[in-house]
Design a protein around this nucleic acid. Structure first.
Lengths: 277, 277
DNA sequence: GCAGTAACTTCACGCCGTACAGTTTCTGCG
DNA sequence: CGCAGAAACTGTACGGCGTGAAGTTACTGC
């Protein structure tokens, strides 16, 4: 009964007033929700509070990402973030209703960053050389993953202690962007490749409508078999990168890079593309 | 200061004596370590205490696996296990010095189960039909993974909240068994496949000695390029299965099975094997 | 029977997410 | 201007976690 429970021996640390009123904000938070800020006319540039709120939200996310980068996904704890920012853990509840919501947001951001990286690589590839473009895309995928292993785990792994993805997946948008990008690979290869898939049994009904909504408009000529090919390419690339990120490859080979390059060569060959390598 | 800290509102629950002296053991524990049980002659069958200790260890593991199966890898908490067994959490420290050690042991067990599953599938395949054997191996791999998604995550994912694999990987033995199995696939395919890898640049020094120690004696004729092939096959299979286990495929296609089958067909084709399908 | 020791419990600590009840500070209206 | 309301934040509390230290019990071998 002596030393009361609750633990948390954290000393007050910065005590209000010292760096006192750090930030004050507005806008519908996780708590107030509806609020009455329709006032200013709803339209134009954000007011002071809104701006501060946006900044604080961004700071929370960036601190969370920094923590993740330095200590892995488990280092994302509300209390650690708050500590870093000189706030109480509870203050974060004004921005994210729950830790899982924070994580979901992070996943979205990180997944978007990955999608940006691969999209960029794709766009900068020579449009007329599908093999080179695919290599470029895949290399960007691997490079990004190795540069941000925590991000990769966040997206593709069991991200964080008790996290359960909310219905419909965590980052459906970014995931769709990646899949659409993959469909782009398949589309670029398809003219050379399609003769290998003449007997494919895939139909549109094999795929998720949400995926097709993005893919079919972007690549109207692509048959179901090509979408299946895109997903399989995804799997192929994901496999080696995932093993590498999680450290399973390093215990078997010292040259995961060489392995990946050979995989790309074989992939290009399997797509019957005119090789550039 | 009122309600004392420490939380843990667990009511005494079974209070000693009730189901009282559940188990008493001997043998070097995580605590005593050296002990003085050299007495009985070190040799023969275990004494009573040793037996009970082994049983308790097994029970801890099985409860942990059950918890994992029902609540995911995060459900593996010492306190939950202890609760289930009618002990205190600290009692487990007599069997595993730390939670991570428990998890490491579980990973080993689970990985071994996976290795058993794929080895069995391989051995029951028709020896003279490499394509069929590879399909059998791969199908066993996927089936096991889908049947034990938590096990798969435990092995290949961020297994459990703060777990960090101990030096040298978590389950090196089982991992090596799987890799050796993969080398078997490569070896079976190699006579048909090798002409595709005439220009491979892989050398023995690209691989971990520990892996080669197991692979080269088992398949003395295999060149480095074939070992690289084995690892790439691993990546290919791992990729699709991993995406499926983690739920990333389901949001894109309703037929992951069909996708996997096509992947196998293409794999067999890429290995230039006489197809059976 | 007695000393030693393995097995287990109790207590304690610091961490975590989160709920609830304040308190301060800003904002826009009258 | 003053004032109501709301947003942002703090304090306290609870239950859960892993783990360390110390104490208790029960079995073991001499």
């Amino acid at each position: 009964m002596t030393a009361t429970g609750d633990g948390n021996g954290r000393d007050p640390q910065v005590k209000r007033g010292e760096q006192g009123a750090r930030r004050k904000q507005d806008g519908q938070g996780a708590r107030g929700e509806q609020g009455a800020q329709g006032r200013r006319g709803a339209g134009g540039g954000l007011g002071r509070r809104e701006r501060l709120r946006v900044e604080t939200t961004a700071e929370i996310k960036s601190v969370a990402l920094a923590l993740m980068a330095s200590g892995g996904p488990d280092a994302i704890t509300l209390r650690a973030i708050a500590r870093e920012m000189g706030m109480t853990a509870n203050a974060i509840y004004g921005y994210f209703p729950t830790r899982d919501d924070l994580v979901t947001t992070l996943i979205n951001d990180v997944y978007t960053a990955l999608a940006d990286a691969v999209d960029t690589a794709w766009e900068t590839g020579a449009p007329l050389d599908p093999a080179a473009r695919i290599r470029s895309w895949a290399t960007a995928f691997r490079d990004w993953s190795l540069a941000h292993p925590e991000g990769f785990r966040l997206i593709y792994g069991d991200p964080v202690p008790g996290y359960r993805a909310p219905a419909g997946g965590a980052a459906p948008d970014a995931a769709r962007r990646v899949c659409t990008g993959l469909a782009g690979l398949a589309a670029a290869a398809w003219p050379h490749t399609q003769h290998l898939y003449a007997t494919s049994e895939f139909e549109w009904s094999d795929f998720d409508p949400g995926l097709l909504d993005k893919v079919r408009p972007a690549f109207p000529e692509l048959p179901p078999a090509a979408v299946a090919l895109a997903l399989r390419i995804w799997g192929r690339l994901h496999g080696l990168v995932s093993l590498e990120v999680y450290g399973h490859l390093r215990t078997q080979t010292v040259s995961p890079h060489k392995l990946f390059q050979e995989e790309l060569t074989q992939l290009v060959r399997a797509l019957a593309l005119p090789a550039t390598n």
